[in-house]
Each structure stands twice: as structure tokens, then as C-alpha cells.
Design a protein around this nucleic acid. Sequence first.
RNA 1: GGACGCGUAGCUCAGUGGGAGAGCGCUCGCUUCACACGCGAGAGGUCGCAGGUUCGAAACCCGCCGCGUCCACCA
Length: 904
Amino acid sequence: MSERIEELEDRTRFEPPEVEPQIIERWLASGLFHPEPDGEASENYSIAIPPPNVTGSLHMGHALNGSVQDTLIRYNRMRGLRTKWIFGTDHAGIATQAQVEKALLAEGINRHELGREAFVERVWEWRAHYGGTIVEQFKRLGASCDYSEERFTLDEGYARAVMQVFVNLYEKGWIYRDRYIVNWDPGSRSAISDLEVEERRETDTLYSIRYDVEGGGSVTIATVRPETMLGDTAVAVHPDDERYRSLVGREAILPLVGRHLQIIADDYVKMDFGTGQLKVTPAHDPNDFEIGTRHELDQVSVIGEDGRMTAEAGERFAGLTVMEAREAVVAELEREGRIVAREEYEHEVPYSHRSGQRIEPLISLQWFMNMDELARPAVAAVREGRVRILPESQRRVYLDWMENIRPWCISRQLWWGHRLPVYYCETCGHVNVALSAPDACGECGGHLRQEEDVLDTWFSSALWPFATLGWPRDTPELKAFYPTNVLSTARDILFLWVARMIMMGIELTGEVPFSDVYIHSVIQAPDGRRMSKSLGTGIDPLQEIDRHGADAVRFGLLAMSSAQDVRYSAEKIQQGQALANKLFNAVRFALLRIDASLGSERAQAIEPSPSPSTVEDRWILSRLTRALADTAARIEQYDFSHAALGLYDFVYGELCDWYLEIVKQRLPDLAEAGSEDDGRQELAATLLYVLRETVAMAHPLIPFVTEELWRYLDDTGKLLVGSAYPSARENLVDPRAEAELARTIEAVTLVRGWRDSVGARAGQFVAARLCADGYELTAPLLGRLARLRLLSEDEQSQALDAVDTSPANNGDALLTHGGEASAAPAVVASIPIPGGTVEVLSGEGLDLGAAERRREATKQKLLAEIERVQAKLERPGFVEKAPAAVVEGERERLRRLRTEMEVL
RNA sequence: GGACGCGUAGCUCAGUGGGAGAGCGCUCGCUUCACACGCGAGAGGUCGCAGGUUCGAAACCCGCCGCGUCCACCA
């Protein structure tokens, strides 16, 4: 026995921790993850990874998306395409800055003491220290990214691309600066975009407050935020509201402040809500801001960027937090008797997705990007199918959002990020926008000061598929790998990222950045809640890899994923682990046997016959061929759960449970029978062929165990990751062999069931006679697998002659007491199988009474079934209207059921 | 308020017009010479409810109930 195969003797289990690190090393050393840029993108295959946060760590979302992408990448690489998985990390402005700030705070330093330059320096150090973590974690998953060209959204080249885009779009007039009401996040002390705001349902108190009207009378307004009244600059009613027509044009007096407020008419006001009178606070409510713009109202900012009341709120309130101010304002209004009512009120409250703090809408000078012109071609691309969004339902979501797109606030009051290439002249105030810092103002030659703000992280992410390949330079990488083939992600960043990549890709490169968008499940905690660190519901994929192996985690995640959100299923991971171990043992078993019998090297040299002499060999080749076709089709259709589960079914349900069980009997015999060399070679050749194809087919899904097995299955020393993906050979499909084995499998199962019910011991061979058609080729298999000692042909024909086949005896119960046929053994039981029966000839040690009870149950089931099929066939219209094939099928079924019934 | 999705075995989920399935769990039996992370056999389901279309509905249509997600400027 060869030494290499001998190693397998003691490895009765697949142990991921022992092999995964070495395999990763071999893959990385092979250079196969890095394709030389060559050819056109249309003939190559590429995916740009959603760049993980540079200081982040691998979570379930990464693990699933990594498994999805790696499956596609490995599949296409094995198909022989030049394949690149573009890899890198995102600087993740707010998230990273917050992390570093927190660490500094622990040292007792805040960033302002440090200053901008030193702070940014610290973030780079932080990145150098923690930036490698997630990269190593992707490797552990087996992700075959091109690590040799890792990109970072703040790298020099990348930054040039970002600046270029800003300047281009500024010159087009789409990027502009404006004082506008924004979502202010007091947590990160920055404006954030609409998409980074999440609404939470909360119950607050809705206060009704009476404002006096100049010259007599009053209005009553309702608010959940009494503190903002300090910034009121008008009261509004609906223009059609008869009740208040006379109020319009008069003035109300703002309590506590004394400011005179115009009473205006505006369509926005709902007549049927509350009193139909609305306080207008342009500086702290997006709707009121719009009203204010329409009516040219003053904007009084009473809440500052620090989340505290400003001086404009008045001496009594300045410096208080918003919540403190609310209490104080209510108390004062109460004292003045102006609170008319308070009631519980449930509504949506905006929170920052980033910091978790309540959003404070306020007016701020920010940079915006008008999206109208960018959106139009991006809508068309999806409408026309140049970008496919899968599943289909997400297409509508995309289109709805894109068709109602609003300007994007792109400036952030942070230090970590791409600083805007905007230079204000300190002399004339002219705004200079340029790729690199000009020496002096273009207008007056005055001294320049660069904008403090940085760009929203997603601005740079939007350029990811092409900026990573060298854009705006015309590089071979860009030519070879852009546009990419598919973008895989979860739903949550469809607008935040995917939509913006499509817009920017079309605008800047003239091409869509990818042709498919695959939106995968969000994995929820087992209890259905969101997986999150703060809830404590997160499950660490690395721990799962440690416990079960990377293959198990990949398989499990793919198997549980679908078009909708799914709960994390530990069982599916377990199933993956079982599969890896099963496959490992199947190969181990076969190789040890083959090697012992004729040496695996020799066996490998044998070309498998496309039409082997045994029916089980023809059967497994046929089933394998179907599995190959199904698996490839499912991967190409992004149907990963069925690809994974289908693989499992083939390996367990066909390869191991049946084929190996059948041929395991043949292997030791062959080892001894030197004269039957042909049969031995043929079996070894088929077995090896099937195992090699199966292992190769499974590689994209479970790369580690398959790569490990390839060492033993392939003598060339070539890595499986760089080998060819097996293709389905149609000439191996053999429907007759499939039918024969299907029948035999059913028969074996039925006999086993019978054996179980009569308490036959596992190893006990029961004497029997096969009285059924369709087992000409498989009778010996049936005997071995069902542990029947079948009479030889001679004995059988003798016995058949001897059996009384008269109708009187046929319909009788199971016990056919011999007597009339003394030459043949008595039949003690009949087991119905497809095409006939197995006649049991010895009841020794069997509890035939138990079998009788079982038979009764089966009979009842059969009767019910027969009745149903009969009713169906007799139903008016069925025979006339149903397709002929269906009718015939039902008739055939009825015949079969009746035959079975007769046997019983 | 709008949109989308889901409700199938104890649990997690497949199944989209013609015999209710898988994994796990449960019961029974097996150290059957690859695997006890194994093997064999079983039990378990008014397919959320109510109508409709159809010869035929878990599947298609309508309504209701329950759950979830996304979008949205009613104080």
C-alpha cells in the first residue's frame, strides 16, 4: 500500500482544525487567487467584494456573503475563466472615528485636545494595528479573494479617484453648498444622510398649548416637542379651513418668549388633526422648514449642534439639554396655565443609525449632491435589464426609491475621511474647487483655507468597482475586470451603496458596474430577533468555524439562505459538518480498498467505461451526471440553498447509502480474485471517477475537505482550486438503470421494514424466494442489502412450480402452510414489492404476529389510497379534461395499488 | 399611510396545478469489516381561517387573522 494512502487508515474523521491552516497556505502560495489582467471583462469573471470596515470583525453577514461570493468565484475559476475577486476594506468614517475616539477617551484624551492632524495620525496607527484582522478572518472562511491587491478606500490612488469625481460633479453643477435642514446626529456631532436615519416607534406626551392672539382670542397648537416652541416663527392653518379664516394675517404671541408670530395659511396643515392649528418651527422640523421657505419666515435656531439649547432659546433655557429644556418649558407653561391637554401619543421618532442617538433636525451649512440626473440612466439600466436585481421583488424597491430620489447630504463633520477638495478664499470668499490644493485664490490671489468637512463614506464606496481597478487611469485591470459580473449583498445597503454604485458607474465609466445584483438573506438570531452585539444576539462565525469547520459554516449558511430573512440554524451547520465528514470517509474507504487491491496509481490510469457492465455502475454514473447538471445550474441561478442541499442528498442518499453499500461487497472479493482483473479494474475506475467528480463538484461549496481529499485522489499534485469543474456528460444518463435501481431500492426498503417489524436480527439472513419482475439484474443486490438468502435459480424455478398459484390461495392471508408442495419450503410470509413479492420461507426466530399487525396498517393505508384514486378517476370531467398522461398515470397507479392489495 | 414578504411535522425550512418533503428532535433496533459527527426502521401534518377559479388547489384569485421587513414630512 502506498504511504500516502496509508495515512488515511487512522484518520477516521475529518478534522478541520488540522487541515484548514495548511490548505489556506497552499492556496495563497499557489498564486491562483491573483489573475494577471488580460483580455476583456466580457470574457473574464470578476466580483468586487463589499469592503468590510477596516477595523471591523467578521459577522454572520460577512460569512454568508463571503460564502456566496466564494462559491461563485471558485465555480467560475474552475470553469476556466480568468477570475478575480476584488478585495479591500472601507475606511468607514463614523464607525472608525468613533472607535478611536472611544479608545482615546479611555486614555483621558479627547480628539480636540489632540488636534486634527494628530488625531488622523492615530486613526492610521489604529488601522495598521487592527486593519489586518478582518482580512485574516476572510481567509479562514476560505474566501479566495485576490489578497495580493488589497485596496483601501483612503489609499492614495483611491483618494485621487474620489477627488476627481467630486470635481467633475461640482463642475457639472450637481454638487453644491446650501444652508438646509439636515439630520443632525448629536452622537457623532455630524450631519448624516436620510438613509442613516432609522425611525423608532415611541410613546410620548402630546401637549396642547394655548397661544394668545394679538387683539383677543387664542390658538391651540399640539406638539410632542414643547421645547421647540422657543423657535416658533409662525402659526399655520389650512387655507380652506373656515374656522380660522379670520385668524389668517393676524399675529399670535409666543408664550414665554413674547415673540409675535404671523398666522399664515398653508396646504400642509391637516384640518382634521388636532385643532387644525400648527406651530411652525422652521429651524427644527423638516416640514416647518419647507413652510418657512414658502412664506419667508425667520429661522430661529434654539437647539445647537451639541444637543443643547442655544442663547436664542433665552437665558432661562440656554445650555440645558433638550430633555431638560422640555421639562422646564412644560413647567413654565403649566405655571402660566397654557397647557390645555396632554395625552399619550405614539409616533415615529428618528434615531441615528450610527450613534443610536436621537436625531436633532437643524439648519446647517452643508454640501449636497443633486441626484436627479444621476438617477435617470440608473433607472433605465435596471428597467432595461442591463442590471438584473434578484430576487425580482427587490427590483421594484430599487425603482421606487430611485424614482423619488432626493438630494444627498454628502458632507460630514468628521476628521477621518476624504476631506472635500474645496478651498475658501479668506480674502474674497471665493470657493475654489480643485483636484489638488491651489496656492492662492483663483479670483483674487488671496490666502486659501480648505473645507474642514469630509465626505460621507458612501461617496467613496460608490466608486468601489472601478476605483479599485485604477480608474480614472486606463489600466489593464480596468479593461480586464470592469464591469464586474455580480454584486452580492444584503438588502440593507441596496440604496446606501448598490444604487449609488450603479449611478456613479454609469456616469463616470459609461458602463453599468455589474450586470447582476444578488440580494441574499439577512441571518437573524435563532429567536427571530436581529443579530446584534448590543442585543447580545450575535453569533460569532469564527467560533462556529472553530467548532465545526469552515466547510460546515459555509454549507450551513448557504443551505439556510433564501430570498427572505431566515433564522440562524445550528442544525444546518451541523448538517454541513456531517457532509464533510461523510465525504471524507467515503473517499477514505474507497481509496484504502482500491489501493489494497490493485494500487491507486494503477487504478487512476484506467479510463472509466462510459457503459460499465454492472447496473449499479451505470446507475451511479447516471445519477452523478444529473447531480452535476443540477449543481452547476443552481450555482449559476444563485440558488445556493438547493445547490448545497442537493449535494447533500446526492452524497448521502445515492453515493453513500446505496452505491457504496452495494459495491463494498464487491471490493474485498475483487482483491482476492486475481483472475477477474477486468471486473476489478472496471469497478475501481468507476468508483474513482465518481468520487473525483463528486469532490470536484462540491469544491465551490465546501472547499477545504474537497481540497484535502484531492491530495489523495489526484496524483499530479495539482490543487483542486485550480482544476477543471466537472461537466455533465449526457451520454452517461441511463434511464433504464435508474428505473431498475429505483425499484430495487424501494424493494430493499420494504423488506427492511418488514424485517424490523418481525424483529429480525440485523445480521440474520432470511430464506426467501423472489417472485417479481424487473429484478433480473438486481436480484443479488436485493438479497445482500435486504439480507435475504434467495434461492438459486434452479431452486427458485422448482419452488415456483411447486407453489400453489390458484386464486383461492392467492387471496389468502400471509401464512401459506405448505403441504401440497412438499418439495418446496413453506411460505411463511409474502412481502409486496414493486412488480411482485418476496416470499419468505422461514419464520425461525421471527415474530410473525407483529408482521400481521403491520400488514393490517399497510392494508388500511392501501385501501384509503385505492379509494382516493378510484374516486378521482370516476369524478365527472376528470378523464375528459385532464391531460392523457395524468389520467394514464392514475390508472397505472390504481393497477399497482390493486396488485399490492392482492398480495396482502 | 404605502410597498413587499411570510404563515406547511415539536423546531428551522423546502415544495407553486395531478401520489404532503428535508435536516434536527423524538421512538425502536443495530459495535453490519468508511463514517456512532455512524447505520437501519418508524411515529408525527384539518399545508393560518373563510370563500372563489378548476375535472383537480399547500400551490392560482379575493377577503380576513397573525407575524416580519422596507419606504414615507401628519404636528
